[in-house]
Structure formats: C-alpha cells, structure tokens
C-alpha cells in the first residue's frame, strides 16, 4: 500500500502512528495554549467534534494521566520539565494511536521524572490508549523493564533482534554483546570493575564501508566480513546480522568470559 504525503499526514500521522519527541521541553509551540494545540490536532483528525467536546475529551484524558485541567489553559513555559513531558505524552496519545514511537522520552529527565514517564507509558498500554510502543533509547536497563522485544541498531542498520530477555542475557551479535557489557549492576565488587569500551568510532554514514558496518571495531572481524552486504540471519526465533554462526559466536564469548 502506498500513500501520498497528504494522505499520510491526514490518515496516519498522529492518528495511527504517533510520536513523542526527544526534547519535550521545546516540542510545544511557546505561544500557544495547550488546549489550542489539541484543538488544532482535533481539527485535522476529528473535525466533527465541537470545541466543547474537545475540551471535555482533553480534560478527561489529562485527568486519567494525573494532569490537572489547569494545564490545558497554560502556556508551555508555565509548566515544569516533567509536566511538559507528561503533557506531550498526553497530547501524542489523545487519538489512541496504534503505534507510539517514543524517541528517547526519558533522556533529559531526572530519575524520578523518568520513573513517572515510564509508569505513564505502561499505564497507557494497560488502559489500551496505545496498542504498541516503539521505545528508542540507549538506556539498556530501562529498556529491559519496558519492552517485550529489543532491536539493536548500529550505523543505521538493525544488527540484532530478539526478546528483551534474550538480548540482555544472551546476545549473539558482537556489537550487542559489547553493548550489554556497558550495563552496570550495583552490587558488591563492582567498584573495582572496569567497563570495557568499544575502540574506535561509528562509521561516517555518508561513506558507508562495504561489508559489515561494525567490522572495523569488532574483535572477531575476518577478511570475509568486509565483502559484500551482510544479510540478517535467522536463528531460532531471532535474527542477527553477522556471517559467523550463532553457536560459534557463543563459544567465543564463553571462552572469552573465562
């Protein structure tokens, strides 16, 4: 199915697929009251609603998300950071989208606000306001608590995909493996533990190297890694992008851990 730009805008954006931006601080028009912005969204997607109906709908939704109706009459600069973030989430989900893409929704927040945001997102899922959630982040421990499946991307490509459990405790792709090594578990003996960094930097995407994009930084790289396009391999119920068989990789990892 192909959609024109205009159809995409009126049928999908905000309605089927909605979005929570990374910087919620600046995501709201500073000179528009929150309710005016919601009215504008409704004019696009639910033009049959009157202003009063929009108001009632917004108040109801905001109250289920523990935001007072007063927020609706406010300008963005009158809200605190955490409130702005929750307001943005409430606005993004007001049309009950099927998919909500959350682009690092917690990255600029303190831990308490992070927790509130995560709770809010879970609440939205439980209530059925949103049906699924794509959570983009680099905070792996957080991800484990939020998601069912994890997809790891490197240099613009998906390198591995599996359930949260599999990805955290049994990574296959060398990049995922290294990435999971960055998780710190605050327990005894961790103070002396050195975190291993991956040497080098990600490739410049203007000139993508041939072959595996991770090859330059991978400790297991062979000459075949740099030839042709590396396709996603399926292994049981998961997939990964590496030419080495999953069992061999696992053996290497086991050997390395000793």
């Amino acid at each position: 199915m192909t959609l024109g730009k205009e159809q995409l805008r009126s049928r999908v954006s905000g309605r089927e697929i909605s979005y929570i931006p990374q910087a919620a601080m600046n995501a709201l028009n500073p000179t528009l009251r929150i309710i005016r912005f919601i009215e504008d969204i409704m004019k696009e997607h639910r033009p049959e609603l009157s202003r009063k109906q929009v108001w009632e709908l917004a108040v109801e939704r905001f109250e289920t998300l523990n935001l007072s109706a007063r927020v609706l009459e406010s300008y963005p600069n009158e809200l605190s950071g955490g409130m702005k973030q929750r307001t943005v989430i409430a606005i993004s989900t007001i049309l009950n989208p099927k998919v909500l893409i959350a682009d690092e929704p917690t990255s600029a927040l303190d831990v308490t606000s992070q927790k509130a945001v995560i709770k809010l997102l879970k609440h939205l899922l439980e209530k059925g306001y949103i049906q699924s959630l794509v959570f983009i982040t680099h905070e792996l421990p957080l991800l484990y608590h939020v998601t069912d499946d994890i997809m790891v991307m490197y240099a613009g490509e998906i390198v591995e995909r599996g359930t949260a459990e599999q990805m955290i405790f049994d990574p296959i792709h060398p990049y995922t493996k290294k990435l999971m090594g960055s998780i710190i578990v605050p327990e005894e003996g961790m103070r002396g533990h050195k975190l291993a960094a991956i040497p080098g930097t990600p490739p410049n995407l203007k000139t993508v190297p041939e072959g595996c994009r991770f090859a330059d930084r991978c400790t297991y790289a062979q000459s075949e890694c740099r030839q042709g396009r590396i396709e996603l391999q399926t292994f049981q119920d998961r997939s990964y992008r590496c030419i080495v068989p999953a069992d061999t990789l696992r053996e290497w990892y086991a050997h390395e851990d000793e």
Partner: peptide, 28 residues
C-alpha cells in the same frame, strides 16, 4: 527548524497551520 514544528508535523497538523505558528512566533 525548531522542535515544535517537527512535532506538529508528526501529529498530522497541516502545513498551512504550522506556517501560521511559525510566522506568529517569528513576528514577535
């Protein structure tokens, strides 16, 4: 180039309205 323009776009608000937001703010 500000974030609210992208956000409004992704929520499906039409370009003419976004242009109104932008120019109102640019006018200040």
């Amino acid at each position: 180039n500000s974030d609210y323009v992208l956000y409004s776009k992704l929520l499906g608000i039409r370009d003419s309205r976004i242009a109104r937001y932008v120019f109102r703010n640019a006018m200040l």
